[in-house]
């Protein structure tokens, strides 16, 4: 066999070659997820453990952020509505804002930061310490055990966390409205849900499913394919957050456009 010591020439340019190779790798990664998601064994125990990590472990942060978001948004909106003597519209305004936009987006951004970085760092450190290779040589499918369970956990937990954020956000809003306008809980609920349609709820849940899948897939992909030792771990964690957030905003714009065209 001939030995060729010349460096390989890029097809287009080095940067563009790497970009298209990356796109192809991501496509293959997602295709593999869909191929393996329903193939036995289903790794139920690990999936439940991941749901606990993604869902339950995020509750404290979500509760605080959701509650403050609802409360602050109500406080900021009141002066503008008060100018027109329309503070009675506050519950309706807040519910539209929280359920349609804030709850899905705030939940996704928090999870991108907390869960995405965690998954990216964990898988990357497993990769650089050869734990993923160790699974493979032990005749265990690491993709199924590590990646599929994490993406599924994010996809399932995000809508639930979103619903919880909405609830807590509305509670924060109610607290402020009750203290300032002496509105009763029943009156608040009646007004709040008067302008919320099935499409709003469906769109929010759908968005959260998409955001959850994005966070899980992006952070798993970057962690699973990490390199360069400990530097690679930090890079995977950081890039997971940045790319997830970027994609979440893009998806938000697209889904809002589609939903508004249906409305």
């Amino acid at each position: 066999m001939e030995s060729n010591d010349q460096p390989e020439k890029p097809v287009i340019s080095k940067g563009l070659d790497a970009f298209f190779t990356n796109i192809y790798d991501i496509f293959r990664f997602i295709r593999r997820f869909f191929r393996e998601v329903l193939r036995p064994p289903l790794e139920v125990k690990e999936f439940i453990r991941q749901c606990y990590m993604v869902g339950y472990k995020s509750l404290a942060l979500i509760s605080l952020t959701g509650f403050i978001t609802g409360l602050v948004f109500t406080k900021q909106s009141r002066p503008s509505l008060a100018e027109f003597g329309a503070t009675s519209w506050l519950p309706s305004l807040i519910s539209i804002a929280v359920i349609r936009a804030l709850a899905p987006l705030v939940t996704a951004l928090i999870c991108a930061g907390k869960v995405g970085s965690g998954i990216g760092a964990e898988l990357a450190s497993m990769k650089v310490t050869e734990q993923i290779d160790a699974m493979e040589v032990s005749a265990i499918n690491p993709f199924k055990y590590l990646v599929v369970t994490r993406i599924m956990a994010c996809t399932v937990c995000l809508p639930l966390l979103m619903a919880y954020t909405a609830l807590v956000g509305m509670a924060g809003s109610y607290l402020d409205i009750h203290l300032n306008e002496q509105t009763t809980l029943m009156a608040f609920i009646n007004k709040a849900f008067n302008d919320i349609s099935f499409l709003d709820l469906f769109a929010s849940f759908f968005k959260s499913i998409v955001f959850g899948f994005t966070i899980g897939a992006v952070s798993s992909y970057l962690g699973y394919n990490a390199s360069q030792g400990t530097t690679g771990v930090g890079k995977a964690a950081n890039t997971s957050v940045v790319v997830s957030m970027f994609l979440i905003f893009i998806e938000e714009i697209i889904i809002v456009q589609v939903v508004n065209s249906i409305r």
Partner: peptide, 28 residues
């Protein structure tokens, strides 16, 4: 049928020693 021992052990950090050993067995 082929065992591979890694340079630094490559033990699964999230599992105890017992679980590390039982893991390949429970899967296979």
């Amino acid at each position: 049928k082929v065992g591979f021992c890694f340079q630094h052990g490559a033990l699964y950090d999230s599992m105890t020693v017992g679980e590390n050993l039982a893991f390949p067995l429970s899967r296979n």
